[in-house]
């Protein structure tokens, strides 16, 4: 995945069957963000693979004050890259 400066990883083991996964997102390179992130804590959240989109979560993070509106695309892309990787792995394990 391209380095957006925002890191997203699984917050717990993915057994490949759950439709809701726990993810953790944090800023690794604040210089890549347009706005100034609130603090450099890691943000844990759950993501429903079938129902939700990365853009939903990114927008909620903006509205919760974690990021500047100008960074919604970077945040959404970082989440989308990680979710795509998880789904790709799942298809390889259980085609």
């Amino acid at each position: 995945a391209e380095d957006t400066g925002v890191r997203v990883e699984l917050a717990e083991e993915d057994n490949g069957r759950k439709s809701t996964i726990a993810l953790r997102l944090w800023v690794e390179d604040p210089k890549k963000l347009k706005g100034k992130p609130k603090d450099n804590g890691a943000i844990e959240f759950t993501f429903e693979l079938e129902k939700e989109t990365p853009e939903d979560v990114a927008q909620e993070m903006i509205e919760s004050g974690f990021f500047n509106e100008s960074d919604v695309k970077i945040v959404a892309k970082s989440i989308r890259d990680r979710v795509a990787l998880i789904q790709w792995r799942r298809e390889r394990i259980r085609p």
Partner: peptide
């Protein structure tokens, strides 16, 4: 550590925890 929690109006819970020390120093 103290885990701050923010619950968005749509109901999603965001839990803020310190970034894992090992990840910060990655090149």
């Amino acid at each position: 550590g103290l885990h701050a929690q923010v619950v968005h109006s749509a109901g999603r819970r965001f839990i803020v925890s310190p970034v894992p020390e090992s990840r910060l120093r990655e090149p």
